[in-house]
Design a protein around this nucleic acid. Sequence first.
DNA 1: CTTTCATTGTTGACGGATCAACCGAGCTTA
DNA 2: TAAGCTCGGTTGATCCGTCAACAATGAAAG
Lengths: 161, 161
Amino acid sequence: MDGKLKDQYLQDQLPIHRFISYRVLRLHSKLNAQAARILKETCGLSLAQWRVVAVVATEDGITPSKISRFSQMDKGQLSRCVKALVDSGLMVTRDDPADQRIQHLSLTAKGHEIHERTLPRMLNRQDRLLLGLSDVEREVIFSAFDKLEVIADAADDPADE
Amino acid sequence: MDGKLKDQYLQDQLPIHRFISYRVLRLHSKLNAQAARILKETCGLSLAQWRVVAVVATEDGITPSKISRFSQMDKGQLSRCVKALVDSGLMVTRDDPADQRIQHLSLTAKGHEIHERTLPRMLNRQDRLLLGLSDVEREVIFSAFDKLEVIADAADDPADE
DNA sequence: CTTTCATTGTTGACGGATCAACCGAGCTTA
DNA sequence: TAAGCTCGGTTGATCCGTCAACAATGAAAG
């Protein structure tokens, strides 16, 4: 008789609730919102900007194209991230002596400071997420992600069998 | 010595690769792109529009607010989806006799036709995703999603301990 | 040397998601 | 009935991610 409760049953029974891509979408938007909340409080960076900072912090001198290649971030998005980070004084670009197309990225002192201040909170969050899972879930989830990514990248077979 | 290969090692070793939210982001964008590809070929709907069609097909007469409540879709996004679907003749709205705020949604004949044409391809895709996983992975992944969603919704503890 | 092609990074355009302000309708309480 | 509240839905602003076009540079092939 309760409307809200009935909606809950509905949620569990609707076929959509077992759709992987729907569940991934929901999880993604929640994780995203949580990370954005933390970053806003801590350093004011967007999630994409934070990822660039984190990568450059562990691989000093890396180039945007390498970041784009292994992290599958969009070139354009990356370019804008770098621009914003340089403008706010967290990052500097250094030209390559041998190839004028290439930029090498490094954090400034301010960039390192912000990275070191922010990383613990992000690791803490990561730990909370992982500790919330059982051992099996923690083991399995990454391999499942790998497999799903491969399938999602594969061509969609046009025939229905 | 090979640049591409070295990038691959880099990908696996960087800490970011084990970050859950990063992996969910990547998986999400791939699943999204795949679904958008299929929908574009099949019926020209956006993913959000397709979800609304799928829900209304199984729950005729459902209202936007109910959809929003259980699927956690944004009210505004839903309103625009419904408008687009009505404009293209796939859906009709029916007023509630007792409460003039409420709209009940139903598919038109054309809407049902498109739903029945599209659903098999989407289910096929879903099957391919699930069959790519091992039994354990398939069992575990949904419970892991549930737990992660709860943690992501929880307040972020401000203290670093 | 010159032509052609691949790579690096920048930019503009577009669609999608999110947030907040808002309106109209119903309910509640005095 | 009037005041204040909640609820359903619409709209606009803004941000983010994606895609395509482009300029500049370098490498390869003739």
